[in-house]
Simulated scan of single mutants.
Amino acid sequence: MKIIMASDHAGVALKLEIKALLLEMGHEVEDMGPYDTTAVDLSDFVYPAAIKVSQENVRGIFVDGVGYGSALIANRIYGIDAVVCQDPFCAKLARQHTDSNVLCLGGKIIGSAIALDIVNTWMTTDFLAEEKYIRRVEKVKAISEKHLVKLS
């Protein structure tokens, strides 16, 4: 599976560890930067990465200081369902119940061991295609259809 990655300066170190795990798992990874810890604006990297996730219908993993900034930016793009997870249980439910396609993590608030466990869980958990979850996901998609502009 192809994974688009992005971060800000606070997430570079953790992003590199996650990238190594994803490659080890056999995934294709496109790192859209940044590539060092020089201070940057998160939106300069997460915004184009989120667009790419939406256009290519792939998954994304974004890392910033706490994860919420990435999720706020990404969820403004049509076709993105970004979640912030701080433990593997939440990662499992985020895939099973919401069919999320972007995982956002906080490089300043979780250590690499738990972050790698979260990523592994999120990447290996499938959507529960049961009637109630399908109905709920479709309702969220209807909101996107009503309020977000489709990418051309």
Rank of each mutant, 00 (worst) to 15 (best):
V58D: 01
K92C: 10
I73Q: 09
L72H: 06
E30H: 07
E17N: 12
L16I: 05
L22H: 08
F62Y: 04
L42Y: 15
F62P: 02
Q86N: 14
P48A: 11
G60Q: 04
P34F: 09
Q86P: 00
C90G: 12
M32L: 15
G33V: 07
E28L: 14
A74G: 01
K15P: 08
V83T: 14
I80T: 02
L93H: 06
N75Y: 05
Y47W: 15
G11I: 07
N57W: 00
V29C: 01
G65T: 03
E17M: 03
A6T: 09
F45N: 07
L21T: 07
K92N: 10
A6L: 09
I18Y: 04
C90V: 14
A50H: 04
D81Q: 11
L72N: 11
V12L: 05
E28S: 15
K19C: 12
R76L: 04
L22S: 08
V84L: 12
V58G: 01
A20I: 10
S54W: 08
S7C: 13
R95P: 05
G69I: 03
A71F: 03
S43A: 13
I3F: 02
V40P: 06
I18Q: 03
L22Q: 07
A20C: 03
Q96Y: 00
V46D: 04
I77A: 01
I3D: 00
I73R: 06
F62W: 03
V66E: 13
P88R: 08
P88C: 12
A10I: 01
M32D: 09
G79R: 00
G67P: 05
E56I: 02
I18V: 15
K19Y: 02
L14R: 02
P48D: 12
Y78T: 00
V29A: 01
V40R: 11
F89Q: 11
I80W: 04
S43G: 02
A49H: 09
V46Q: 10
V40M: 11
L23W: 02
F89N: 11
A49Q: 09
L14H: 03
H27S: 06
I4C: 05
E24T: 13
L42A: 10
A50L: 02
M32P: 11
V58C: 14
S7H: 08
G26Q: 10
L42I: 13
R76G: 09
Y47I: 10
D8G: 12
A13T: 14
D87I: 00
R76W: 00
L16S: 14
